[in-house]
Write a protein that binds this DNA or RNA. Structure first.
Lengths: 213, 213
DNA sequence: AGCGGTTTGTATCTTTTGTTACAAAATATG
DNA sequence: CATATTTTGTAACAAAAGATACAAACCGCT
């Protein structure tokens, strides 16, 4: 559990001192339970989050309610969409869900605009965030457009393992299917194939990646 | 053919007077032939383009050289990727090709950074551009992930017709396939189906959209 | 141990998209 | 106008992914 002071200090290497001071007086600590959705498409955004601990999942939901994973926001990062939407007072175009219990530092949108002008380190942080997300999203497009589902699944699992630091992944086939935008049956089929090929082991609610993968 | 003065005046309603003046002294006119590629992935970017006339196609090329259309840049617009890459002195992650003969006003990157701070209208323009492109790219992801190729093709043709202001579209099946990330044969098949259904007429190098579409 | 809900395995069938191959039609070019 | 090149049409087949249906395995809980 962070104090605002401790939270702000996490960004000591990124932001200039004056900005850190402003951050301390203007921001708000917030806790979110794993699984909770913080932001839905269409919702207006009043504050921008800096993630202190935990992970957020950012996904896209289309008109028919179909969802697809875009990227994860990790400790010390923020969300490019929220920045841009916030600054243009535009409603959200994405969904943001806490993957695990998470803590965030919220910066209200009315101070943010000034910071872009006053603090080069803030401007840099914003632009770097946008660039990173653009790059990730374009990579996603490559994969969705040209890669087979089997390959996307393998990448997804490897990512997960890397993110959690464990080769034992706690997910149902249904959850995986949701993230990749396909059905449970398809995922079960592909996973079974991978198991037969000695790439992984399947358990109830779990997937254990093997070194062969 | 524009003079710099005339070119700058195109942005009178978007930029504040002081910025227009700076734009006039700092920017450079440029002409590009239809079909010419201005920017490739990996290339470093030294200036940001404001499009005066014509159209640019922005596409993504993956490691295997497969290409897919992302969006078009039209008159009075600019490219979000170029902004962000430029500001972070990062190489390009996209390809930019002139669809038709085009004229652009190029702003060197070293003045741009200051403009973000000095001119609210510039900052606004940049953020608005980024937001618009983010939105478009996310729409693309929706389509690629969940829509059938037949629907994507129809949308593509409608877009083209709207952009050129004519229901007679000058494209080969191969070109369409390239933009949608699929093969010529597949496009021919789908187009023929649409023709049989009285949605369009097929000619050599041309597709004529009918009102049924 | 038994029950109820959740998760996984699997078969079957359909649809969509990709691939290859070849011929015909349209156009460009000398 | 004769020939080369580009574009289009189409068949036949393969692979990938989606849909449906049902059974079996697993887990939490009493």
């Amino acid at each position: 559990m962070f104090s605002v002071k401790a939270a702000v200090s996490k960004f000591e290497s990124v932001f200039e001192p004056a900005l850190l001071a402003e951050l301390e007086t203007n921001s708000m600590l917030m806790t979110v339970k794993g699984g909770d959705t913080m932001l839905n498409p269409g919702q207006t955004i009043r504050a921008v989050p800096l993630l202190l601990s935990g992970t957020f999942k950012v996904s896209r939901v289309n008109d028919e309610g179909q969802e697809i994973l875009l990227y994860y926001v990790k400790e010390g990062e923020s969300c490019a969409m929220t920045f841009t939407c916030c600054m243009m007072s535009h409603f959200s175009v994405i969904r943001g869900t806490a993957e695990e219990d998470s803590e965030l530092l919220c910066v209200p949108m009315d101070v943010m605009d000034g910071w872009m002008v006053k603090y080069p380190t803030w401007k840099r942080f914003v632009m770097q965030t946008i660039l990173n997300r653009f790059t990730e999203i374009l990579k996603s497009i490559d994969d969705i457009a040209f890669k087979k589902l089997a390959d996307r699944l393998v990448n997804y699992l490897k990512e997960k393992a890397k993110a959690t630091g464990s080769s034992l992944i706690n997910l149902t086939h249904q959850q995986i299917g949701d993230d990749l935008g396909t059905s449970r049956v398809v995922i079960s089929r592909l996973l079974k194939k991978l198991e037969i090929d000695n790439k992984l082991l399947l358990y109830y609610n779990q997937v254990k990646l093997l070194s062969e993968l």
